[in-house]
Design a protein around this nucleic acid. Structure first.
Lengths: 195, 195
DNA sequence: ATACGATCTTAACCTATGTGAACGAAAAGC
DNA sequence: GCTTTTCGTTCACATAGGTTAAGATCGTAT
């Protein structure tokens, strides 16, 4: 059942898990079936869970002072999501996370995460790599946001995730690109004309 | 000599290091005295070192296709810097790092880092926290860059680092804020008028 | 002290994106 | 099936920041 998790971990650490290791891990990942538009992590409400997206889609976002939504990342199949700050500190989260389609997640509680790190060194290694990669890619995203305009960022996004426009409402894609929906609409119009 | 490192680690893990632990660690941190404007990590040239800024200042940056510099982060006293991607993977770095003042750094080689993580669990814990914090703050920065204009970002920056304008050339502050030096100059002019 | 290069300022003009509003289309509720 | 939101498009106009270029300052080397 948690086979996607197994594959995901094995690819990242570039090693196989033994069946014994995987069985232990499996027990700590609780399946969670959600409908579309369910917000399961809310700014301010402690969430000591780490989630694996088995199928479906989510987005992690903040709401600014003007009430505007800014998407920090999308979570598609095979992504690990949640509010790491709340997960580790036990303080209320900084981010919100919501499903965008009906989704199957696996949730791991912080207490079980600690056990997993202690008992399965490969899992600890996996997690270190996960966080490192996330950190690096967010630094690169900061730089890209400064050096590329919205059109280029949009093209890169749909090149990397061709299915995204079909799955995710356009106003959320805009919020990920850091522009308004009308601007994304205009960009798409310009791109259509160019062809 | 490496006392700042000791304090830095102890604060982050919220525990004391024993003298024995600290002595071991000390041996793995090699002091490095650099002049201003020395580039010690260069995009493309493998750098398997992690650096602690004991005194001085550095900036981590990328150069885009147009040859423009984008500062990803400044490293002041007490900051940990370097190209984590190269450090862990052994591949060439994604970022460049350069001193902005004459600086005293401590460098830790990757091989020693591995030993430190194995032999001193508190160090491994420290490093996990360091990377997690970095990841979170970069995600927040992405969101802030979208929700605030350059003037607000500038005000926040100098509020958090009042000494920065005296230490760092303005064109680099601009590159950190994601704007051109002329624009920062204009923003400062507007702020002066407002008062 | 002088001279040169690097940095900062200012200003006029340009462009990408924001704003507000109207409209149509698609989706959701009844 | 009809109605009501929600979402996407388009347009006219506003604005933040980019571009270019000219001077003014500052720093450093000679």
């Amino acid at each position: 059942m948690q086979n996607n998790i197994r594959k995901n971990i094995e690819v990242k650490i570039n090693q196989k898990l033994t069946d014994a290791e995987f069985e232990k891990l499996s027990a700590w990942f609780v399946p969670l079936q959600l409908e579309s538009k369910e917000q399961f992590v809310t700014e301010g409400k402690v969430s000591r869970n780490l989630y694996f997206v088995d199928s479906g889609a989510t987005h992690t976002f903040i709401v600014d002072k003007k009430g505007e939504v800014h998407t920090v990342q999308f979570g598609l199949e095979g992504y690990w999501i949640g509010d790491m700050y709340s997960f580790f500190s036990g303080n209320p989260p900084i981010f919100n996370v919501e499903t965008l389609e009906s989704s199957t997640l696996f949730a791991m509680q912080h207490a079980d995460f600690e056990k997993a790190c202690e008992q399965i060194p490969k899992f600890e290694m996996f997690f270190r790599i996960l966080v490192q990669n996330g950190y690096l890619s967010s630094l690169q995203r900061i730089a890209k946001n400064f050096s590329e305009d919205a059109e280029q960022r949009y093209l890169t996004l749909i090149k990397n995730h061709p299915d995204l426009p079909q799955r995710i409402p356009q106003y959320l894609v805009a919020s990920y690109l850091g522009i308004k929906p009308q601007s994304l609409s205009r960009i798409r119009q310009n791109l259509a004309k160019k062809k």
